Computed example of a mutant assay.
Amino acid sequence: MASPENILLHLPQEEEQQVREIFAKLEERGFPTQHQTPHITITFSPAMANDVVERAAELLPPVIPASFR
């Protein structure tokens, strides 16, 4: 199975560290280790057409403070 395509919001470094600290506390309590970089998933799709990505780049920045890469 191919990796899905998605649009993710990555957190600023300070907020990412806060989430990692929460992950560590959960792991201490027996939850599985989290290996992913903390993020917020906006979309999740087996394949995403270029026009969808372009439209998201137009619509999302005014309502979500983010940079698109």
Rank of each mutant, 00 (worst) to 15 (best):
A2G: 10
A2V: 11
S3I: 09
S3T: 13
S3Q: 13
S3Y: 13
P4F: 10
P4V: 03
P4G: 11
E5T: 15
N6F: 15
N6L: 15
N6T: 15
I7T: 09
I7E: 01
L9S: 02
L9H: 02
L11E: 01
L11P: 00
P12M: 00
P12R: 01
Q13A: 10
Q13R: 09
E14G: 04
E14C: 01
E14M: 02
E14P: 00
E14A: 14
E15P: 01
E15T: 04
E15C: 02
E15L: 07
E15Q: 13
E16L: 00
E16M: 01
E16S: 07
E16K: 00
E16H: 00
Q17W: 00
Q17F: 01
Q17G: 02
Q18R: 14
V19N: 01
V19L: 02
R20Q: 15
R20V: 01
R20M: 09
E21M: 03
I22Y: 03
I22E: 14
I22R: 11
F23K: 00
A24G: 04
A24F: 08
A24P: 05
K25N: 08
K25G: 04
K25P: 03
E27L: 05
E27G: 06
E28Q: 15
E28N: 09
E28G: 08
R29Y: 05
G30N: 09
G30F: 07
G30R: 03
G30Y: 09
G30E: 13
F31L: 15
F31A: 12
F31N: 08
F31P: 01
P32Q: 07
P32R: 07
T33Y: 14
T33W: 10
T33V: 15
T33Q: 15
Q34D: 05
Q34Y: 05
Q34V: 14
H35D: 07
H35W: 07
H35T: 10
Q36L: 13
Q36K: 08
Q36I: 12
Q36M: 12
T37Y: 06
P38D: 00
T41D: 10
I42G: 06
I42P: 07
T43Q: 04
T43G: 04
T43A: 08
F44Y: 15
F44V: 11
F44K: 06
S45T: 12
M48K: 08
M48P: 06
M48C: 13
M48T: 14
M48Y: 06
A49E: 15
A49V: 06
A49I: 03
N50Q: 15
N50I: 08
N50V: 12
N50W: 03
D51M: 08
D51R: 12
D51K: 14
V52S: 05
V52Q: 06
V52H: 05
V52Y: 02
V52P: 09
V53K: 14
V53Y: 10
V53S: 10
E54G: 04
E54V: 07
R55N: 11
R55Y: 12
A56Y: 06
A56Q: 03
A56T: 04
A56N: 06
A57E: 14
E58N: 10
L59R: 10
L59N: 05
L59E: 12
L60T: 05
L60V: 09
L60F: 12
P61I: 02
P61Q: 11
P61M: 07
P62D: 09
P62T: 03
P62H: 06
P62K: 05
P65V: 01
P65E: 12
S67A: 11
R69D: 11
